[in-house]
Write a protein that binds this DNA or RNA. Structure first.
Lengths: 219, 219
DNA sequence: TGGGTTTATATGTTATACGCTTTTTGTAAC
DNA sequence: GTTACAAAAAGCGTATAACATATAAACCCA
């Protein structure tokens, strides 16, 4: 177990990030720094550092002297993020499959188990987080820091859209089966097949999202 | 002209970023926050916010209670960053060429002119910055925020390696000609050709970098 | 109802202080 | 001259209070 001391600002980063993803922070309204800091029981210094992180992460925007705003979601951003994921993630999965050690295999299986358990309990925000963790566990053995960070960021942005528009990944039976097959292929070192399935898996989510966007426009 | 007020922390971000790129900040040594803040004539709060930004940007790492460190450069990171650029940038250039307006054309031409002027004066750090600006001007008309931000980040990380190992882009005659041809194709809406040339252009830089890495190993 | 002025709020930053780690220094033992 | 450990120093991360400046809200008056 890697003992990693987390700074207060890093904890706040995660906490606020999850609030943004879950949609519990209003869009287009400046985040009241003093109020949020007070609510969290911290000073504004680590809070602001967390907000700066989130801006760099693409979840917030800031305007000088006006503060930080949750970035609005748009269909075109979703298209963009999924296009990037399709271009990067499947190949990363394939390469990672070739490099994965038994420890990596165990980590991925554990991640999927945790996801399944959370899905059974219908804990929406937890499912989203664990879904991300599972996807990341399939590319982590690649060991490429920059690539991993980009994939993680894309997954985080993508999750906002999923969490707003779709049922959580694990509850969906198709996604569940795909995850299982994916893990199986991946662990057996079948990188190419895993890659193709991952591509289809991501593409299907995008397809579902598109349907919802269409509904929104009509509704 | 878009009037954009810049926060102190944002200015510091740019300033420190350029120092990292130019290599004037020692690697593997914690950045002395009080000292740097004093040198810049600011307090540590906006400085820390800038450092947090830079960490998220992939130029710094931090360890709780130990501070921020300039990330060491490695051949494998260079390979990684260039692989990502090759996968993303050429296509983005092609699509942007189709969307570019006369204003975009002018911006790109101006960027190249500025780059040429700086190259004539042999201002290494300025050339790097303007080279980045030129590359970005070719993809900006695409209008995809997330994609653009990723490309910009990759270019920034890449520039560290270029600035350490190679002559600045504009001084190199081959690069200069490629830039000219690239701009020409791009402005004439020949997206596919521009894309191919951009791919070759990036690949050549990577090739040159590899040679230097080999030298370092032997040297 | 609208426009302009005043008032109130919030942001971004400074200065100072302090607990807690980490690093360095000092000292003793082997 | 190392090694081991204790003590001291330095530096990080956070808190608090304060304030200039910019934005937003309230107000007033026509």
């Amino acid at each position: 177990m890697a003992l990693v001391v987390q700074t207060l600002s890093e904890q706040i980063f995660t906490l606020v990030r999850d609030r943004i993803i879950s949609g519990s922070l209003p869009v287009e309204v400046a985040i009241r720094q003093d109020a949020l800091a007070a609510e969290l029981g911290v000073s504004k210094i680590p809070l602001r550092e967390a907000l700066v992180r989130l801006e760099q992460e693409g979840l917030l925007t800031s305007q000088a002297n006006r503060g930080f705003f949750v970035r609005p979601m748009t269909a075109s951003e979703a298209e963009e993020v999924y296009a990037l994921r399709l271009k990067i993630e499947p190949e990363a999965v394939a390469r990672a499959a070739a490099l994965a050690t038994p420890a990596d295999h165990k980590a991925a299986r554990d991640a999927l188990d945790a996801l399944d358990r959370a899905a059974a309990e219908d804990n929406k925000s937890e499912v989203g987080k664990l879904n991300r963790a599972f996807h990341l566990s399939l590319v982590r053995p690649l060991g490429r820091q920059v690539t991993l960070q980009i994939i993680e960021r894309l997954n985080i942005i993508a999750e906002r859209y999923v969490s707003k528009h779709l049922e959580p990944a694990g509850r969906d039976d198709r996604a569940h089966k795909e995850h299982s097959t994916l893990l199986d292929l991946w662990m057996r070192g079948k990188g190419e097949e895993a890659s193709e399935l991952m591509h289809a898996h991501i593409a299907e989510t995008l397809y579902d999202l598109r349907k919802e966007f269409e509904n929104d426009k009509r509704g």
